[in-house]
């Protein structure tokens, strides 16, 4: 039976692609893989920065693309649990199943924040492994990148040296970027901030910003008017410098809060492609910081 299947597989195989085919759930890991893999890989993200990464449909085109992928890079921490398992199963692609070398989770390489002490959906859309939005802290790209370079080398040993060199070059540039950004943002440390959804916990952690309120009463639960009024009262004395929202989040709550509290609203790109300026990882954080610093 197996031989028969193999024979069919050989007959049906398209002309073998030289480059490793990498599919990522969200744009930031595609950008990172591109930095490391260069021309040794073909990489594409299945979502855009304007889409809520929790709420993606396991649509036909996505399954078709997963079918031929050699490596699937996900954020993990249950961010994609509403759609990715279907894509993996329906793809009929053994390489990208969970537990295989062809499945890589970025969050597994990172120290997680906001790991819930108890799991209860009465607390809203909680993730057992912690807040999954690790991509908003630029420091994680070093750790994720190192693990990813090793994984690429494992899947494509012929180009192992190229992946390692790609990572080393990226890490050098990235450390310089980090030093520059941390210097730029030094004055922001300790500034009070209001967020709409807990999308930026890692960014806040990096920059040392002080989150004084979240507009969502619970993760994934939209705020009621009564709740917003309470938040408004609560933060009045703290004079938050910004209210933050990711570009894919609904606008109503933060618009209302900004208008009624006088707090400047900043829409952050969140990931590569989230704004005109955020074309790659470096410009993503350049733009993020520029938007934060623009509010005096």
């Amino acid at each position: 039976m197996r031989n028969f299947m193999m024979a069919i597989a050989l007959l049906l195989a398209l002309p073998v692609q030289a480059a490793l085919s990498v599919l990522t759930t969200v744009p930031e890991w595609a950008a990172l893989a591109q930095e490391i893999g260069g021309d040794k890989i073909r990489v594409a993200a299945v979502t855009t920065a304007l889409q809520d990464p929790h709420r993606i449909e396991a649509r036909p085109s996505l399954i078709a693309r997963a079918r031929s992928a050699d490596l699937l890079i996900a954020t993990g921490a249950e961010l994609e649990s509403g759609w990715l398992p279907v894509v993996q199963r329906e793809s009929g692609n053994a390489r990208i199943q969970t537990g295989q070398p062809g499945y890589f989770e970025a969050a597994a390489q990172v120290r997680m924040l906001e790991i819930p002490a108890k799991l209860d959906r009465a607390d809203g859309d909680v993730h057992a492994s912690g807040n999954p939005h690790v991509n908003t802290d630029p420091r994680v790209y070093l750790q994720v990148g190192a693990a990813l370079a090793a994984r690429l080398a494992q899947l494509d040993p012929a180009h192992a040296a190229a992946y390692q060199a790609g990572y080393t070059a990226f890490a050098g540039r990235w450390r310089a970027n980090l030093a520059r950004w941390e210097q730029q943002a030094a004055a922001l440390r300790g500034q009070p901030v209001v967020v709409q959804h807990k999308s930026f916990s890692y960014l806040l952690d990096w920059l040392g910003l002080k989150e004084v309120a979240t507009l969502e009463p619970k993760p994934g639960v939209e705020a009621s008017a009564a709740h917003l009024s309470r938040v408004l009262q609560q933060v009045r004395g703290q004079k938050p410098r910004w209210v933050l929202r990711a570009v894919w989040e609904g606008s109503r709550t933060s618009d209302w809060f900004a208008a009624n509290s006088g707090t400047p609203l900043v829409v952050l790109p969140f990931t590569v492609g989230g704004s005109d300026a955020a074309k790659d990882l470096t410009s993503l954080f350049d733009d993020t910081l520029a938007r934060l610093l623009a509010v005096k």
Partner: peptide, 11 residues
Amino acid sequence: FQTLGLGARFT
């Protein structure tokens, strides 16, 4: 039961 990657994109 369902196979997880039988090969050649069969399930």
